[in-house]
Nucleic acid binder design. Structure first.
Ligand SMILES: [Mn+2]
Ligand SMILES: [Mn+2]
Ligand SMILES: [Zn+2]
Ligand SMILES: [Zn+2]
Lengths: 146, 146
DNA sequence: TTATTATGTTGTAATGATTACAATATTGAT
DNA sequence: ATCAATATTGTAATCATTACAACATAATAA
């Protein structure tokens, strides 16, 4: 959900992150594009508005935001990180056919395991892979027409 | 657990994977080293025995074994994939201090979610990050001596 | 066993995401 | 407005992974 500059500014200040035009814009981009964008997508999306933007800045900004807990880094694919403004626990489903990454609710906290009794858990990640409903329809049609 | 060549050969034949010295050795390496090794570790470990081994072969072999479901690729870290001979569902805990990746039991199937009712789920992954008991001891001692 | 063909292996070069770094610009505080 | 601390930028370096072509090996049948 898109948030106002005032809200975003407040969030950055609360986390002691210095204010800058680039950081606000990256943060805003993530609130508008909740589809787990890549660095390239963020960079290209903002490049129109901010022609001087450097990709290095996008990387360093995302790194700072992740350290502060304002964004989450998703490493489902081996080749490219994705970024998520939703930091509350939820699972991710990646469709191997169309590449879309879906959110899903899951009670990850219910997975308490005796094996990790003495471990200090800081971060929990859950992701599934497979085929999404939209792509399943396409596959069924393809097999019918054979 | 280490398995005999006969067992490993049988597993490859069952999956219709052509037999080769390199493939058997990679598979054997994974049964001996269950600590989720990287490609580099596998390559260096086998290089002594097989001086002609190529890193490309390690990659292609692991890719073939993963396609056949004989090994699992773990993408916890953004920079380097790790490989696991344990294909049964289990979770991974990565200690951010020492880098060790621990296995833990977790009933991942209990996480059925209504959000994925119509999805075809092929693969489930669960991983946590934090600090392991061994490293926690070191941290406590460090804070005491301050 | 030998010949034939398909597939695997190897070394090298290319790819591409991420990081390092130094010069410059901006921020926040005085 | 000044100043010190920090952020941004552009470029080059890093490094895991992949592409590819020459060569080697495995499966199959004669
Ligand atoms: Mn998400
Ligand atoms: Mn494991
Ligand atoms: Zn899909
Ligand atoms: Zn540790």
């Amino acid at each position: 959900m898109k948030r106002s500059y005032e809200e975003l500014t407040k969030e950055l200040k609360m986390k002691n992150i210095r204010l800058s035009h680039q950081r606000l814009k990256v943060l805003e981009y993530l609130t508008i594009h909740m589809d787990h964008p890549t660095v390239d997508q963020i960079y290209n999306g903002l490049h129109k508005e901010i022609p001087t933007l450097s990709k290095t800045t996008v990387y360093s900004t995302l790194s700072a935001l992740a350290d502060a807990g304002l964004v989450r880094i998703i490493n489902i694919e081996d080749n490219e990180a994705r970024y998520d403004i939703r930091v509350a626990d939820h699972g991710h489903f990646k469709c191997e056919s169309c590449g879309t990454i879906y959110d899903f609710q899951a009670n990850i906290d219910s997975l308490t395991t005796v094996d990790l009794k003495r471990f200090d858990i800081k971060d929990k990640n859950l992701y599934f892979k497979g085929c999404c409903p939209t792509c399943l329809v396409g596959k069924n049609e393809a097999s019918l027409s054979k």
